[in-house]
Design a protein around this nucleic acid. Structure first.
Lengths: 229, 229
DNA sequence: ACCTGAACACCGTTCAAGT
DNA sequence: ACCTGAACACCGTTCAAGT
């Protein structure tokens, strides 16, 4: 069970340092992959502000500065963690579907879901360099729109519009999620000020809790606008 | 010229402390308004990471802890600075226009422009509580869409769709702006990998520099989808 | 009512060294 | 090739005081 530790009793007293009890099994060696995986864990658990080089090293059972051998700096950790979370494992069956619209919806709902699984990722994504997984998603989206007959002249506008929509929706959703109390308080304040904001008070804008449905419906409207003919 | 300093020579030696030469005129007293205004200055000049309670106090010529009398904490400073930057001074003439679509476009382009004037604001906005200026904009938008005949049942979807679009577009634009080199490098990398991303390479997705035009055209598509009939 | 300095518990990263 | 501790120049905020 502990090959490396067998005969630890007295083989060489000099190495029997008063090692803290924290880590029962010896850690695998540091690596880029382990660092990124642990960073994602930490981000999931503690949010963006929770990621600290010191805490990261702690979780990995290494000294802080050891990280810097594998990674440029903290920004680098963010970029790597972000892209690692955005891998796309295509649609259920990669058939030659004629339903381009269903494909686009699936791709973008998956994109949103991937980011919401790691709520720190959404607000980071539009502000960082585009990693390979992100570029793959854009490439696939572009392809699908192209097959659907979107004109070349409109292609970039179409892609950026969908990008904007998904990013805005997901960042907003991920943030509001973190503070249900705030939302209740906001709506309460809104009700109190209903003379100043009568229209959005009446439509209960801030109480609409069906995020998934709203996302899907709005995406439908946008695709209506984008679809040729 | 320096009324407060006249007779400084020997009035009361005890108060002649070795005061640093930095501030020629005496500062006005600390206030919430001054703090917020200076925070905006600092954010404009140095970005989100540049705003520090210590630096803020320095600029105001006060001790760090003095800020905490007027302000809860750093988060509070962010919220106040953000809302202060989003005041909406309606359209040129507040006439009873029949051109609802032009109104909506104007409102949203102004929203975008306001945020781009303070590039740190865009990525902050969707993650924070909605201040009075933001609520006013939403109220006005809701009103206009209502007059335009958008059904009550679709209202919230319409508002959030436009919100998502504007936020996504502005965050992306503000970030890419900060790093032109990155963008060039990204496109270069993309060209090098043109076999892996042929479609977006061909459409020069990352080189499209007409941000304003793309925003406007995409907004047009979205409004096409949202507009009744 | 308003302002302050000292102190605490943190940060990211450089550097010179160790193996 | 990989890891380390000490040190530097910072952070936000609590607290106990000052006026």
């Amino acid at each position: 069970m502990a090959a490396k530790r067998s005969g630890a009793r007295s083989k060489r007293g000099i190495n029997e340092r008063l090692q803290p009890v924290q880590e029962p099994r010896s850690e695998p060696p540091l690596s880029r992959e382990r660092i990124v995986a642990t960073a994602v864990e930490l981000l999931d658990a503690q949010g963006v502000d929770g990621l600290t080089m010191r805490r990261l090293a702690d979780r990995l059972g290494s000294g802080v500065m050891s990280l810097y051998w594998h990674v440029d700096n903290k920004e680098d950790v963010f970029d790597l963690a972000l892209d690692s979370v955005l891998e796309y494992r295509g649609p259920p069956q990669m058939v030659e579907s004629r339903d381009w619209r269903g494909e686009v919806v699936h791709m973008l709902e998956d994109w949103r879901a991937s980011m919401l699984r790691h709520p720190w990722s959404a607000s980071l994504l539009p502000r960082r360099a585009l990693g390979p997984n992100i570029l793959s998603r854009l490439e696939l989206l572009s392809n699908t729109l192209s097959r659907a007959g979107v004109a070349d002249a409109d292609m970039n506008v179409a892609i950026w519009s969908l990008w904007n929509y998904v990013m805005g929706a997901t960042i907003t959703r991920a943030s509001f999620d973190l503070s249900d109390d705030d939302r209740a308080a906001a709506q309460q304040r809104l009700t109190r000020l209903s003379d100043r904001y009568p229209t959005i008070e009446r439509s209960r804008l801030l109480l609409d809790n069906d995020w998934g449905g709203t996302f899907r419906k709005g995406l439908g409207f946008l695709l209506d606008g984008l679809s040729p003919g």
